[in-house]
Amino acid sequence: MSETVVISAESKPHLPRGMHLKHDATRGEWLLMAPERVLKLNAVAVEILKRCDGKATLGEIVDQLAAAFAAERERIEVDVRALLAELVAKRMVDL
């Protein structure tokens, strides 16, 4: 039900306590560790979540990614919003 989540460009997404980004040596993958759950992350999701430190705003995160990957800002913003909306709905990211 991600459509119920509204994320403003000023919000500062971050992983709440009990959520960790983890590089798992056994499986050679990036994981998002949650209570009772583990989410496998693709490369894009890892880059987004690494920047969700509670200081950068959504707009700044998109700027950073656009610069780092020389990609179109609009496309990146769509990806970032989609991922965050999904994780906010699961209570895995706070704004």
Binding site: M1, T4, V5, V88, A89, K90, R91
Partner: peptide, 10 residues
Amino acid sequence: LRKVYAGKIV
């Protein structure tokens, strides 16, 4: 209640 509590509690 899933609808009512979407985004609040899983």
